[in-house]
Amino acid sequence: MTTLRLWLFASFVLFSGQLQAEQVKPFVKGSFSAIQQQYEGQAYLVLFWGKDCAYCMKELAFLSPLLKANPAVTLVTVATDPFLDESFIRDKMAEFDLAEADNWVFANEYPEMLYFDVEKRWRGELPLTYLSNGKDIVRKSGLLKEADIAAWLQTF
């Protein structure tokens, strides 16, 4: 009986995690604050990306092995193309072996209103990455250097 309960619990946890990874959440006004609250006290990285942004693809490509080696750090991705097809996002993340990331998509037909909500100075330049050690958060505009992100991850 105990074995069955453990199996059921493990299955539930696995299923919940899978569900979270498969869901693409709508990013609206206040979502960035919500993400910061959700991961408060944990190490995480928020990457804003676009489907036509080649630099974003480069960043996604080198993040996967680095994050796999540092499972304590959560990756949050936000697609900035309004209402980008969820299956496209899931496929793209799977392509980069990042299927377990916490994925969001801009859910506003006025994307610049979300830029403004994330940070008043942001004008949509991509990629945009926020790195948090659970306490402080650092903004990086443009493609991160692989060596820099590796060095940051090694601090955990």
Binding site: G50, D52, C53, A54, Y55, C56, R123, G124, E125, L126, P127, S141, G142, L143
Partner: peptide
């Protein structure tokens, strides 16, 4: 401006 990304401007 040192920027490796997509400014669109």
């Amino acid at each position: 401006w040192d920027f490796q990304g997509c400014p669109h401007i």
